[in-house]
């Protein structure tokens, strides 16, 4: 299937890749190879890892032509996320911002309430806001009303590689929310990325599953192929699942249309 016409719209930007790659848990000098193998057009990076003018500045390692998606990791409140977003813009990272507001150091679960507040503020300032969230339908609706460009529900606790623990709730978001639903956090295997794409997710974001693989670029490629397979299956329309076999001698076969 030619995927070049299957466009993912985020704000006024268009992407043909549906794989957003993380950059935080592996060596910076591997980012380029991972991006190439992933075919990614967007890479997330923690702004707190930016070290402008200094050594090991993560921004310097994002290849040319790749859209930077700075995230607000480290923010505990909406106000802190807003400050980080503004700083990202000042540093020339563009208008995309992935909001992460986390007040839980153990499971790193996002604070949906603060995330909505930050989204409301930042969309008014012209940011293309992509909020990381716990998959709650009411929150997703509020984020959409606040002007978010997508919603990014977690599949499992971040970094856990536990897979699609929130599957049914993500399915509800896909069914009910008109924005792109980008599944973020917790996906551990390419097969899980494939499954969520088959369900109709617009894209996936992965970091730890790739960063903790023995061969990082090879795992990036495996995810790419799985995402494409899942997307193609979704577009092709999955066959109906039946819980029972089709009876070859149906019980209603005795009915006579003439009577």
């Amino acid at each position: 299937m030619d995927n070049s016409k299957d466009i993912l719209h985020l704000g006024s930007h268009k992407f043909t890749s549906r794989f957003i790659l993380g950059s935080g848990k592996y060596s910076l000098n591997l980012i380029k190879a991972a991006v190439e193998q992933a075919g990614a057009q967007m890479v997330t990076m923690a702004l707190r890892r930016a070290n402008p003018g200094g050594k090991e500045n993560i921004i310097d390692y994002i290849p040319e032509g790749i859209t930077r998606l700075p995230n607000t990791s480290g923010a505990r409140t909406a106000a802190e996320a807003v400050k980080i977003a503004r700083l990202a813009r000042e540093l020339g990272c563009g208008d995309f911002i992935k909001i992460e507001v986390i007040r839980d150091s153990k499971y790193l679960l996002p604070d949906n309430y603060e995330t909505i507040k930050a989204t409301e503020i930042l969309t008014k300032e012209g940011f293309i806001v992509m909020p990381y969230m716990y998959p709650d339908l009411n929150v997703a609706r509020d984020l959409a009303s606040a002007g978010a460009a997508s919603v990014m529900p977690l599949a499992a606790p971040i970094g856990s590689n536990q897979g699609l623990l929130t599957k049914e709730f993500i399915r509800i978001l896909i069914d009910e929310i008109d924005l792109p639903v980008i599944v973020d956090a917790g996906l551990g295997r390419p097969s899980q990325a494939c499954e969520v794409m088959e369900m109709g997710a617009a894209a996936i974001m992965a970091n730890t599953a790739i960063a903790t693989a023995r061969n990082i670029p090879a795992m990036a490629l495996a995810f790419k192929k799985a995402i494409e397979a899942g997307r193609n299956a979704y577009l092709a329309g999955l066959g109906r699942i039946q819980n029972t076999a089709s009876a070859s001698s149906p019980l209603t076969g005795f009915l006579d249309d003439g009577n």
């Binding site: 707190r48 090991e56 980080i84």
Partner: peptide, 20 residues
Amino acid sequence: IFSMLKERGLQPVLSDYLYV
């Protein structure tokens, strides 16, 4: 220390924080 970390396949991180 920087060289040691790189030789071991580890990523030295100098900045991991934003004061906000």
